[in-house]
Design a protein around this nucleic acid. Structure first.
Lengths: 187, 187
DNA sequence: AGCAAAATTTATCATAAGATAAATAATCAG
DNA sequence: CTGATTATTTATCTTATGATAAATTTTGCT
């Protein structure tokens, strides 16, 4: 739990009782490489904190698998379009390496919001920051070339190449594997 | 204020006192067509509710003006990447028609969060919904053709063509004016 | 109304990325 | 370790969109 509390402190430091209340709705998850942590068609009821490993959210468009995002250690991952709407998700979360996570039960978390406004505030801030990242991602996809996006990704996550297969990176960048290979080949 | 309270009720119904507290930090804004409501370089300190008119957020990339989004009546608009980070915004908000808005002072709003958890919850839910929209927009930009995006926009906002110049729509769709004209010409 | 400015369309040519196929390299299971 | 599978690269050809320029239409001003 320590890593998670450190992560929380970046957004909103919680009281003892609030930390304890959250710890009671958390459970550890160990999962093997390439396994789905959450599968397509199910409604999101768990927010995950990554202690170890790499995650990606993916979905299918016209039979083709698309990677929506990656998440590394000490980050949170959830399919927000399901978490916030209560609708089943068309997306899945897969762990790219053998991983250790902490799962936070989201219906129970939302109940805690009533008793602990500080917890509601914490998650408000966490998701506000994620929202800002997504707004920036729209800009990046819309007005940078594939090559610019590739270079920006490397700068932001220098170890992504070591940990994530190129085929996943390609669809994340919005291009085909073949185009990514071409871009990489230039240098 | 009535429209605004109706809008709030879709997310979280507030007590009398909470509504009153919000009304005290609101002020009406009347603004002419093509005027900037908020300008580039300033930090966002107001969240706007549109009573009448159409707004867009825009910014510059390489001297070229880009429209990030549109907002119509009975919606909220803010440059969230500044609102949530406190940093100056590279973006501006412009009203495309003669408009009437309600401006909500955001620093004062955030103070109200301490006294009224219900207000914090209201805005949490408003921005969660906006976040989900943005996640969906990433998908739309990344994996639909320009023509598909154009048709999707028309379906979503059928009156956008009547109210918004095509040059703004083009950059919103991530294409040039000329390409948009070509797409429209096909039918 | 009538002119000027701005918006939109049309045309032409250039280019980045897609589709497909095939070759090579890396990884994994037994 | 080795063969089989999967991932990546390379090659060729096609296509959607960009860049630029010019023509046309619409809008706004006085």
């Amino acid at each position: 739990m320590n890593n998670l509390i450190t992560y929380f402190n970046k957004y909103n430091t919680l009281s003892e009782e609030a930390n304890k209340a959250i710890s009671e709705i958390c459970k550890p998850v160990i999962i093997k490489k390439n396994q789905d942590l959450q599968s397509i068609g199910h409604t999101c009821r768990t927010i995950y904190f990554i202690k170890k490993g790499v995650a990606r959210i993916y979905y299918y468009k016209d039979e083709i698998e698309i990677t929506e995002c990656f998440a590394f250690e000490n980050a949170i991952i959830a399919r927000v379009e399901s978490l916030f709407t209560g609708k089943p998700s068309r997306k899945a979360i897969q762990m790219i390496e053998d991983s250790e996570l902490i799962g936070i039960n989201s219906p129970k978390l939302f109940e805690l919001y009533d008793k602990f406004p500080e917890i509601e505030r914490l998650f408000r801030k966490i998701f506000e920051a994620a929202y800002v990242d997504t707004v920036n991602r729209v800009e990046s996809i819309q007005f940078h070339s594939a090559e610019e996006r590739y270079n920006a990704l490397l700068k932001e996550s220098p170890n992504v190449l070591q940990r994530v297969p190129l085929k996943y990176i390609a669809s994340y960048l919005g291009i085909t594997q073949v185009s990514l290979s071409r871009i990489r080949g230039i240098r």
